[in-house]
Simulated assay, not measured.
Amino acid sequence: MAGKFEVYKDKAGKFRFRLKAGNGQIIATGEAYESKTALMNGIESIRSNAAMAELVDMSDAPAPAAMQR
Rank of each mutant, 00 (worst) to 15 (best):
M1C: 04
M1A: 11
A2L: 03
G3N: 03
G3K: 12
G3T: 11
K4C: 12
K4T: 11
F5G: 04
E6F: 01
V7P: 01
V7I: 04
V7N: 06
Y8N: 05
K9C: 02
K9M: 04
K9G: 04
D10V: 13
K11H: 11
K11P: 07
A12I: 01
A12R: 11
K14H: 13
F15H: 13
F17P: 00
F17Q: 05
R18W: 07
L19S: 10
L19T: 07
L19R: 13
K20E: 13
K20G: 07
G22M: 03
G22D: 09
G22W: 10
G22Y: 02
N23P: 01
N23V: 05
G24P: 13
I27C: 04
A28M: 14
T29P: 05
G30V: 09
G30W: 00
G30S: 15
E31D: 03
E31S: 06
E31Y: 08
E31N: 01
A32L: 07
A32N: 12
Y33M: 10
Y33R: 12
Y33C: 11
E34M: 11
S35L: 12
S35G: 14
S35A: 13
K36V: 11
K36P: 12
T37A: 13
T37I: 15
A38C: 12
A38H: 14
L39I: 05
L39A: 02
M40C: 08
N41I: 08
N41M: 06
N41K: 14
G42S: 05
G42V: 02
I43H: 00
I43E: 08
I43L: 02
I43Q: 06
E44V: 09
E44I: 08
S45M: 07
S45G: 07
S45R: 09
I46F: 05
I46Y: 10
R47W: 06
R47Y: 04
R47L: 10
S48Q: 15
S48M: 14
S48R: 15
N49F: 14
N49A: 14
N49K: 15
N49G: 15
A50S: 09
A50K: 03
A50V: 10
A50Q: 02
M52H: 15
M52Y: 14
A53K: 11
A53L: 10
A53D: 10
E54Q: 14
L55E: 06
L55I: 08
V56Q: 11
V56R: 11
V56H: 06
V56K: 12
D57H: 00
M58S: 07
M58F: 09
S59T: 05
S59I: 00
D60I: 05
D60N: 07
D60F: 01
A63V: 00
A63Y: 02
A63I: 02
P64V: 01
A65L: 03
A66P: 00
A66S: 10
M67W: 03
M67L: 07
M67V: 07
M67Y: 00
Q68P: 01
R69S: 03
R69N: 08
